[in-house]
Structure formats: C-alpha cells, structure tokens
Design a protein around this nucleic acid. Structure first.
Lengths: 187, 187
DNA sequence: GTCTATAACTCGATAGAC
DNA sequence: GTCTATCGAGTTATAGAC
C-alpha cells in the first residue's frame, strides 16, 4: 500500500494538473495550487521545490495516463481501424475541449514559446500518441507513410481542438470529428 | 503628419505585439516591454493605463494588419481559388510558425482559458479570416456549406501550426500545407 | 499641455527560517 | 504549520523638458 506521503504528492499533482489545464501554466500561481489542494504552503514545498518541478510531475502523470489509455485500447480493440476510431471518439467526446482546448496541445503551445526545456518533456505526450497511431497505420499496410499519416491525424485533431475552443462550440467539434472519422473509414 | 506621440504609441504596440507572440501574454512582463521598447516605464503608462490595454491595442493592430492583407489579396487575385491558395501559401511561408506557432491561434488558446473578455476581442481575428474564406467558398458555388468549409480550412491551418510548433519542424509544415493546397485544388 | 523621466508604492508570490 | 524576508510584478505620483 502507498504511504501517506505518496497520496499527498499525487493529490497535489491532480490539483495542479487541472489548474494548469484550465488556466494555463503561467497564469496559475503557486498560491492557486495551495488553495485548490487545501494543503499548507510548506507542505507542498516539502514535495516540490519549485512550480516547474510540479509541472514536470504533472507531465509525468499525463504520460502515465496516456500509456494506460493506449494499453486499454490495445486490449479492447484488435482492429487498427477500431483503434483509430477510439482515438477520434476520444476527441469527439471530450466536453472540456470547447472550454479549455486540448490539454496536451495547449500546454505545448504555451511551453513551446519560451520554455523549451519544459516543452521537451511535454512533447513526449505527443510522441506517445504519434508512435501508437503510426503503429496502426503500419498494421493497415501503410508502412512507408505511417509516420506522416500519424502526424496528419494528430494535426487534424489539434486543429479541431483549437477551433472548438476559439468558438466554444460543441457543434463544430461534432461536425469536424465526424469528418475525421470519415477519413479513417476511407483508409 | 502624425504627432511624435503617435509614433511612440505605435512603437510600443509593435514591441508588445512581438513579445506577446514570442513569449505569450502572461509570460510577458511589463518590464519586458520597457526593456524591449527602450522607453521609460512612466512614458508607456502615459499611453496605456494597464497591460491589458496594451493587449487590446495589439489586437486592434492585428485586426488592421489582417484587413489590409485581405484587401490586398482581393485586389491581387480575382479567382476565389487563387485567393484560397494565397491563404494556404501564407501559412506555408511563415517561418516563425515553427518557432512560436500561429500568432492568432496561440493568443486565442491562451486567452480562451481564463481571460474570456480579452478572448472576445482576439476571436475577431479569426472571424475576419472566417468571413473572407466563406466568401470565397460562396463564390465557388458552395453557398450552403461555405461557413462550415471556412471553419474546416481554418481548423486545418491551426492544426498544422500546432504540430509544426510542437516539433519545430519546417518539413511537416511544408508537407501538410501541400496537402491543404491539394484540398483546395480539388474543390 | 503634451511628452519624458525618475521615483516610489502596493501587492502578492516565492522561499526559507523558525 | 507559522511567520517573515525578499523580490518582482503592475501600477501610480510627480517633477522636469519641450
């Protein structure tokens, strides 16, 4: 069983993950995390020395979340197209997308400007999906185009997320993801 | 002729525009603007009461820039497809895209999280392109689908920008914009 | 009276001593 | 866990120059 400290640590990470997503990394203050988590300042400092360190832990957590999700899809669906559909469905079903955009995309967009060291870690979140999607394209017989197709699909999903958030519009999210599902179907 | 103050004001706006683009709005401090512009603190406050007000002026400036650009394309190209190509070419040619992402998209992504009042102004930048693109689709005979096609094209461009910035990769920018140009060609 | 220049204030965040 | 120092953010005040 996990120690008490493990739980405290992961509680802090969950709080920070939500705040970074909903407000952005720069816009989230250390005090915001203190208030939202309910812990005392010094207590949080015991686990993380800086805000940057919290972000690193959040990114680690997101990596774990994604690996778990991809493994679940691997177990759930044998057919590569069914797996690609699972990916598109995830985008279509995410109601928070119209509020805060894609958690991975918006994080990379922010960090990619002038926090490159941190973006190097956040980019891994894209790589996880990228490699997994490429595997599906390979399985469908697109060996030599798998990587470019994977980036294309990721890009389409990101574009949908941006527009859906800009207009805070669930309809455009639905419409565009249907088009993306159509693209998968025609493979 | 414009007064001296007019020039100072527009110099401040240009500096802030670049900084907000390259670093993000939250990540840019007032001191950053002071240092980059070379003006004195108090001098900048003579022209703008708050940092938010500087951003509003920057967005106004971007609106003007876009209107000018669209008017130029209208004058330059009579054919709707040629105009759509001009739009796609702009994306393909923007070398800064792989560094800092789309200036309009990344700004909206940031402001859309928890600065909705400001995003309401930044969204206009999208609307300008959206309306103009829709006009071209109408001219091509897609009256009833013009609006959705416009959002689709904008989304594709945004997705390309995100991926190009995440991987800081000019190749993917080139490849994906070629695909987008192909999509325009097949209309 | 507009613009420039300098100074100083408030506030909250980070950090670390106790 | 509390308390306090320090720093930097955004902002305001005001004196001098054109």
């Amino acid at each position: 069983m996990a120690s008490k400290g493990e739980k405290t640590r992961s509680d802090i990470i969950v709080c920070a993950k939500n705040l970074f997503y909903q407000r952005g990394y720069e816009a989230t203050s250390f005090t915001d995390i203190v208030n939202a988590s309910g812990f005392f300042r010094g207590n949080i400092y015991h686990y993380f020395k800086t805000k940057d360190e919290i972000l690193e832990a959040v990114i680690q957590q997101r990596q774990t979340d994604i690996r778990t999700g991809l493994a679940y899809w691997d177990a759930q669906y044998a057919d590569p197209k069914a797996r690609l559909n699972a990916f598109v469905s995830m985008v279509a079903r995410s109601s928070e997308l119209t509020e805060y955009g894609c958690p991975i995309g918006s994080l990379n967009t922010e960090l990619g400007k002038e926090r490159r060291e941190l973006q190097d870690e956040a980019r891994v979140l894209f790589d996880l999906f990228r490699h997994w999607l490429a595997q599906q394209f390979v399985a469908l017989g697109y060996e030599d185009k798998a990587e470019t197709m994977s980036l294309h699909l990721l890009g389409r999903a990101q574009g949908i997320a941006v527009i859906a958030q800009v207009y805070h519009d669930a309809d455009v999210l639905k419409r565009e993801t249907q088009m993306l599902a159509e693209w998968v179907r025609e493979l």
